[in-house]
Amino acid sequence: MEATDQLAWSVAFQLASSDRINLSPHIIVLMRWFILYFVFILLPELALAAKPQRVVSLNLCADQLLLQLSEPESIVSLTNLSVDPELSYLAKEAAEYPVNSGSAEEILKMNPDLVLAGSFTARPAVSYLKKKEFRVVELSIPESMKAMREQYLKVADLLGEREKAERQLREMDRRIAQAKSSGDENLVAAVYYANGFTAGKKSITTEVLNHAGFENLSEKSGVDSFGFYPLEKLIEAEPDLLILGSYNKDRHSLAQKLLDHPALKRFWGESDRGQARVIIPDALWICATPVIAEAVEILAQKRKEIVSRR
């Protein structure tokens, strides 16, 4: 829509101001009216559209960004995962909004002026909405703090909330700098999620661990960004800190039952060998937003405990 308007505008302008082409006076008059229409009616509309009024999210992490950045009244709908406190850090805030399940039909009815989607979720809806010329912005999964910052500011710009975003990022930097420990003990931490997955070297998790003073175990392994890590390998590596994904005792899955495996309790259980385990709720760092500062704080605290016990 925008693109075609701009094109028409420039063509009309060129035609109207050109004296090489002989235009009949009627056409010139018509053109002028068009130009007036563009300048005084369409352009202000476009300018308004720069700050979207009806934003829909199709992705859990887009939910988090919206909740932290957007004016509450411009959020039309969030994903159904946004209200799950295990996955969504801002589940309480999300409860205020209608949820969608990511089907094109639902989104169409909401008539959004901006759709935030992930690059892997709700794909059929995303391609359909794009075809229907809705404004769809796809978010990637940031693999570093730098990428996270860039994306955060990009979304903030879309929403016209740059200042807010910069303020939040500064606060994050402050918290991380404060949490950072100064010891030089070389400690290794391993992250173990449901199904035996771990975050690899190209992930923001590794940077969070580094900030808290740990080396990520999978930096040495073949895991690139997110991948499977055999239980036996984890035990063999004997990391100083074992970080487990959250496990809700009321909602059962084999995937999360793995985190309860007796083999994991032998090293990081009650019998103390100077190793520690900690549960970091998935909601805290599943999405890259400034709240990961809290994960850094928890981990840095854990590091102090381990060091003091040795």
Binding site: L87, N195, L231, R251, S253, L254, Q256, A263
Partner: peptide, 22 residues
């Protein structure tokens, strides 16, 4: 099941596995 992982676990129940049993 309210657990997001559950739906993908049908493969285990239909095919079977002994991985990481205790």
């Amino acid at each position: 099941s309210p657990n997001p992982y559950a739906a993908t676990e049908i493969f285990f129940w239909l095919m079977g596995s002994l991985a990481d049993r205790s």
